[in-house]
Computed example of a mutant assay.
Amino acid sequence: MKFFRFAMIAVFIFSFCIPINSFASIENPKEKINIPSSVISITKENTYPNPTQDLPSLQPSELTQELLDTSKVKIENPHLIRMLNESSFNKSPFSIGLRATIYLGEWPLNYESTETVPNWEYQKINTNYHDNRGGEANFQLHYVQETQKTIKGGLTAKVPNADDVQKMMMIKAGEKTNVPLAFSTTIGAGTKKNQTYNVPPNRLGYLYAYAPAINEKGKITYGEVYIVFKGWKRYIVTKNVTSQGIGAWIPIQDHVSFGFLTSGQQR
Rank of each mutant, 00 (worst) to 15 (best):
V73S: 14
L63R: 08
S61P: 04
L55K: 13
L80T: 08
P60S: 08
T52Y: 04
Q53N: 13
K74S: 15
N85D: 09
K74M: 13
P78G: 11
P78N: 07
L80E: 06
S57C: 00
L68S: 12
L58I: 04
T64M: 02
V73D: 12
L55V: 08
L80F: 10
E45P: 00
P51T: 05
S87P: 02
E86Q: 15
R82S: 15
N46H: 05
S87L: 07
L58Q: 10
K91R: 14
L68Y: 01
N50C: 04
P51K: 10
Q65A: 14
P78S: 11
N85R: 06
N77R: 04
K72D: 13
P56F: 02
Y48A: 05
L67M: 12
P78Y: 05
T64H: 01
I81D: 11
E62Y: 09
K91W: 15
T47R: 03
E62A: 14
I75R: 08
R82F: 06
T70K: 00
L55S: 12
R82D: 13
T70A: 01
D54H: 01
K74P: 12
N50L: 01
F89A: 14
P60C: 08
Y48I: 01
K91I: 14
S71W: 01
D69L: 08
N90W: 06
L84E: 06
